[in-house]
Simulated scan of single mutants.
Amino acid sequence: MLRNVYVPEIYNGSNSNGNWELSMIEALQGIGVFLADGAIYDRAISLFRNRVPAFVYLESDGALPRTKPGDGRDTRDEIIGYWQGQSTFVTGLTQETCRDFTHTGYGISAISHVLETSRIQGIDLYPEFGERLRHALGFQARWERNLEPVPSWLCKGTLHRGLGPITEVGYNAMSNRLGYAMGNTQALTESRRPAGSNNLFVAWETLTHASNPA
Protein backbone atom coordinates (compact mmCIF):
# COMPACT_ATOMS: atom_id res chain seq x y z
CA MET A 1 0.00 0.00 0.00
CA LEU A 2 2.68 2.52 0.96
CA ARG A 3 4.99 1.70 -1.94
CA ASN A 4 2.40 1.23 -4.67
CA VAL A 5 -0.37 3.65 -3.70
CA TYR A 6 1.06 6.45 -1.57
CA VAL A 7 4.56 6.90 -2.92
CA PRO A 8 3.47 7.65 -6.52
CA GLU A 9 1.14 10.37 -5.22
CA ILE A 10 3.81 12.20 -3.22
CA TYR A 11 7.10 11.32 -4.93
CA ASN A 12 7.19 14.45 -7.09
CA GLY A 13 6.07 16.85 -4.38
CA SER A 14 3.90 19.86 -5.13
CA ASN A 15 4.21 23.41 -6.42
CA SER A 16 1.24 24.50 -4.30
CA ASN A 17 1.62 26.21 -0.92
CA GLY A 18 4.65 25.01 1.00
CA ASN A 19 2.85 23.04 3.70
CA TRP A 20 1.60 20.64 1.00
CA GLU A 21 5.04 19.57 -0.14
CA LEU A 22 6.54 19.62 3.35
CA SER A 23 3.80 17.26 4.53
CA MET A 24 4.44 15.06 1.48
CA ILE A 25 8.15 15.05 2.29
CA GLU A 26 7.50 14.03 5.89
CA ALA A 27 5.31 11.16 4.67
CA LEU A 28 7.85 10.09 2.05
CA GLN A 29 10.65 10.08 4.60
CA GLY A 30 8.58 8.00 7.02
CA ILE A 31 7.73 5.53 4.28
CA GLY A 32 11.40 5.24 3.38
CA VAL A 33 12.22 4.40 6.99
CA PHE A 34 9.35 1.94 7.36
CA LEU A 35 10.20 0.12 4.13
CA ALA A 36 13.97 0.39 4.72
CA ASP A 37 14.12 1.86 1.23
CA GLY A 38 17.11 4.15 0.87
CA ALA A 39 16.05 5.51 -2.52
CA ILE A 40 12.68 6.70 -1.21
CA TYR A 41 14.34 8.17 1.87
CA ASP A 42 16.94 10.01 -0.22
CA ARG A 43 14.23 11.37 -2.48
CA ALA A 44 12.52 12.88 0.56
CA ILE A 45 15.71 14.58 1.70
CA SER A 46 16.35 15.93 -1.79
CA LEU A 47 12.89 17.51 -1.88
CA PHE A 48 13.41 18.83 1.65
CA ARG A 49 16.65 20.59 0.74
CA ASN A 50 14.89 22.47 -2.03
CA ARG A 51 11.65 23.28 -0.23
CA VAL A 52 12.69 24.48 3.24
CA PRO A 53 14.72 27.49 1.99
CA ALA A 54 11.72 28.40 -0.18
CA PHE A 55 9.35 28.26 2.82
CA VAL A 56 11.22 30.10 5.58
CA TYR A 57 12.96 33.39 4.81
CA LEU A 58 16.28 34.44 6.31
CA GLU A 59 17.85 37.85 5.77
CA SER A 60 20.87 36.12 4.28
CA ASP A 61 18.68 34.94 1.38
CA GLY A 62 18.78 38.43 -0.10
CA ALA A 63 16.11 40.93 -1.06
CA LEU A 64 13.62 38.23 -2.04
CA PRO A 65 12.88 34.74 -0.70
CA ARG A 66 14.45 31.79 -2.41
CA THR A 67 12.37 29.82 -4.85
CA LYS A 68 12.16 26.08 -5.34
CA PRO A 69 14.13 25.10 -8.45
CA GLY A 70 11.81 24.65 -11.39
CA ASP A 71 8.68 26.08 -9.80
CA GLY A 72 8.37 28.73 -12.53
CA ARG A 73 8.25 31.76 -10.23
CA ASP A 74 11.04 33.96 -11.52
CA THR A 75 9.94 37.57 -11.13
CA ARG A 76 9.52 39.76 -8.07
CA ASP A 77 5.77 40.02 -8.66
CA GLU A 78 5.41 36.25 -8.97
CA ILE A 79 7.34 35.66 -5.76
CA ILE A 80 5.38 38.29 -3.82
CA GLY A 81 2.15 36.82 -5.12
CA TYR A 82 3.22 33.36 -3.95
CA TRP A 83 4.05 34.82 -0.55
CA GLN A 84 0.42 35.93 -0.16
CA GLY A 85 1.13 39.49 -1.30
CA GLN A 86 3.77 40.15 1.36
CA SER A 87 6.47 42.47 -0.01
CA THR A 88 8.54 43.11 3.13
CA PHE A 89 10.65 40.14 4.08
CA VAL A 90 12.12 39.61 7.53
CA THR A 91 13.85 36.66 9.13
CA GLY A 92 11.41 33.96 10.23
CA LEU A 93 8.58 34.94 7.89
CA THR A 94 7.18 31.97 5.99
CA GLN A 95 5.55 31.62 2.62
CA GLU A 96 2.17 31.09 4.34
CA THR A 97 2.41 33.50 7.29
CA CYS A 98 0.07 35.95 5.57
CA ARG A 99 -2.30 33.18 4.54
CA ASP A 100 -2.91 31.94 8.07
CA PHE A 101 -0.92 30.53 10.97
CA THR A 102 -2.68 27.16 10.84
CA HIS A 103 -1.25 26.18 7.46
CA THR A 104 2.05 27.81 8.42
CA GLY A 105 2.09 25.52 11.44
CA TYR A 106 1.62 22.45 9.27
CA GLY A 107 4.76 23.37 7.35
CA ILE A 108 6.83 24.14 10.46
CA SER A 109 5.69 20.90 12.06
CA ALA A 110 6.78 18.89 9.03
CA ILE A 111 10.18 20.58 9.04
CA SER A 112 10.72 19.69 12.69
CA HIS A 113 9.63 16.09 12.16
CA VAL A 114 11.91 15.55 9.16
CA LEU A 115 14.86 16.98 11.08
CA GLU A 116 14.19 14.75 14.08
CA THR A 117 13.71 11.63 11.99
CA SER A 118 16.93 12.37 10.13
CA ARG A 119 18.79 12.74 13.41
CA ILE A 120 17.44 9.41 14.64
CA GLN A 121 18.50 7.84 11.33
CA GLY A 122 22.04 9.10 11.89
CA ILE A 123 22.24 12.19 9.65
CA ASP A 124 22.15 15.53 11.47
CA LEU A 125 20.48 18.15 9.28
CA TYR A 126 20.17 20.72 12.07
CA PRO A 127 23.37 22.56 11.06
CA GLU A 128 21.85 23.03 7.60
CA PHE A 129 18.25 23.87 8.51
CA GLY A 130 18.08 24.53 12.25
CA GLU A 131 18.29 28.31 11.87
CA ARG A 132 15.27 28.37 9.60
CA LEU A 133 13.28 26.23 12.03
CA ARG A 134 14.33 28.32 15.02
CA HIS A 135 13.44 31.63 13.41
CA ALA A 136 10.19 30.33 11.91
CA LEU A 137 9.09 29.22 15.36
CA GLY A 138 10.20 32.46 16.98
CA PHE A 139 8.53 34.75 14.45
CA GLN A 140 5.21 32.94 14.46
CA ALA A 141 5.26 32.54 18.25
CA ARG A 142 5.83 36.26 18.71
CA TRP A 143 2.71 37.18 16.77
CA GLU A 144 0.65 34.21 17.92
CA ARG A 145 1.02 35.52 21.48
CA ASN A 146 -0.85 38.68 20.40
CA LEU A 147 0.97 41.01 22.80
CA GLU A 148 1.44 43.92 20.41
CA PRO A 149 -0.33 45.56 17.46
CA VAL A 150 0.40 44.04 14.08
CA PRO A 151 2.41 46.56 12.00
CA SER A 152 1.01 47.62 8.66
CA TRP A 153 3.96 46.15 6.75
CA LEU A 154 3.15 42.64 8.02
CA CYS A 155 0.30 41.01 6.12
CA LYS A 156 -1.28 44.45 5.66
CA GLY A 157 -1.80 44.66 9.42
CA THR A 158 -4.00 41.58 9.73
CA LEU A 159 -2.98 38.13 10.93
CA HIS A 160 -5.07 34.98 11.04
CA ARG A 161 -3.73 33.24 14.13
CA GLY A 162 -4.14 29.62 15.13
CA LEU A 163 -0.66 28.11 15.05
CA GLY A 164 -1.72 24.82 16.62
CA PRO A 165 0.22 22.47 18.91
CA ILE A 166 3.30 22.34 16.70
CA THR A 167 6.11 23.94 18.71
CA GLU A 168 7.26 21.18 21.09
CA VAL A 169 9.52 19.21 18.74
CA GLY A 170 11.36 22.20 17.30
CA TYR A 171 11.59 24.00 20.64
CA ASN A 172 12.99 20.91 22.35
CA ALA A 173 15.59 20.40 19.63
CA MET A 174 16.75 23.99 19.26
CA SER A 175 16.51 25.12 22.89
CA ASN A 176 16.79 22.10 25.19
CA ARG A 177 19.26 20.14 23.09
CA LEU A 178 21.18 22.82 21.18
CA GLY A 179 20.95 25.59 23.77
CA TYR A 180 19.44 28.52 21.83
CA ALA A 181 17.41 31.07 23.74
CA MET A 182 13.89 31.11 22.30
CA GLY A 183 11.88 33.41 24.52
CA ASN A 184 8.68 33.75 22.51
CA THR A 185 8.62 30.09 21.49
CA GLN A 186 9.22 29.03 25.09
CA ALA A 187 6.48 31.28 26.44
CA LEU A 188 3.97 30.11 23.84
CA THR A 189 4.88 26.44 24.24
CA GLU A 190 4.69 26.45 28.03
CA SER A 191 1.42 28.40 28.04
CA ARG A 192 -0.28 25.71 25.95
CA ARG A 193 0.93 22.57 27.67
CA PRO A 194 -0.07 19.82 27.50
CA ALA A 195 -0.23 20.06 23.73
CA GLY A 196 -2.88 17.83 22.22
CA SER A 197 -3.66 17.00 18.60
CA ASN A 198 -4.56 19.08 15.55
CA ASN A 199 -6.32 15.99 14.14
CA LEU A 200 -4.02 15.96 11.10
CA PHE A 201 -0.26 15.83 11.56
CA VAL A 202 0.49 16.39 15.25
CA ALA A 203 -0.41 14.46 18.40
CA TRP A 204 0.61 14.69 22.06
CA GLU A 205 4.09 16.14 21.54
CA THR A 206 4.34 17.48 25.09
CA LEU A 207 4.34 13.84 26.13
CA THR A 208 7.04 12.83 23.65
CA HIS A 209 9.33 15.87 23.56
CA ALA A 210 8.86 18.40 26.37
CA SER A 211 12.13 18.98 28.24
CA ASN A 212 13.64 15.90 26.65
CA PRO A 213 17.09 16.92 25.35
CA ALA A 214 17.95 13.35 24.38
Rank of each mutant, 00 (worst) to 15 (best):
M1E: 13
W83F: 09
T185V: 13
R43M: 00
S14D: 15
E190T: 13
P213N: 01
E96P: 01
K68Y: 01
T67E: 12
S109G: 04
G122S: 06
N199D: 10
E131A: 04
I80P: 03
M1H: 14
Q95E: 13
N4I: 03
T167K: 06
A36W: 03
E96W: 00
E205K: 08
E128F: 01
A110I: 01
T208V: 04
A27M: 08
W83R: 05
S152V: 14
L154I: 09
N15D: 15
L28I: 09
P69A: 14
N50H: 09
V90C: 00
E96M: 02
N172P: 04
L64C: 09
S211G: 12
R76G: 06
A203M: 03
D77T: 15
E9R: 15
A181G: 00
E148D: 07
N12S: 04
A195Q: 13
Q86D: 06
F48I: 05
A210C: 01
L125W: 15
S46V: 08
H160P: 00
Q121N: 14
R99M: 02
D42E: 14
T88M: 04
A39I: 14
E168V: 11
F48G: 08
D124M: 11
T117N: 04
T94S: 15
L133Q: 07
G13P: 05
N198T: 00
T167C: 08
N4E: 14
N176I: 06
G138P: 00
V52P: 12
T206W: 01
Y11L: 12
G138R: 09
A173R: 08
P8C: 13
L188Q: 06
S14Y: 02
S46P: 02
P151A: 03
G138M: 03
T67A: 10
L2D: 11
A141I: 14
E59D: 15
A173E: 07
E205Q: 10
G92W: 04
N198Y: 02
L188A: 04
R145A: 10
L47I: 13
I10D: 15
E148C: 10
D74G: 15
G122H: 10
L93C: 02
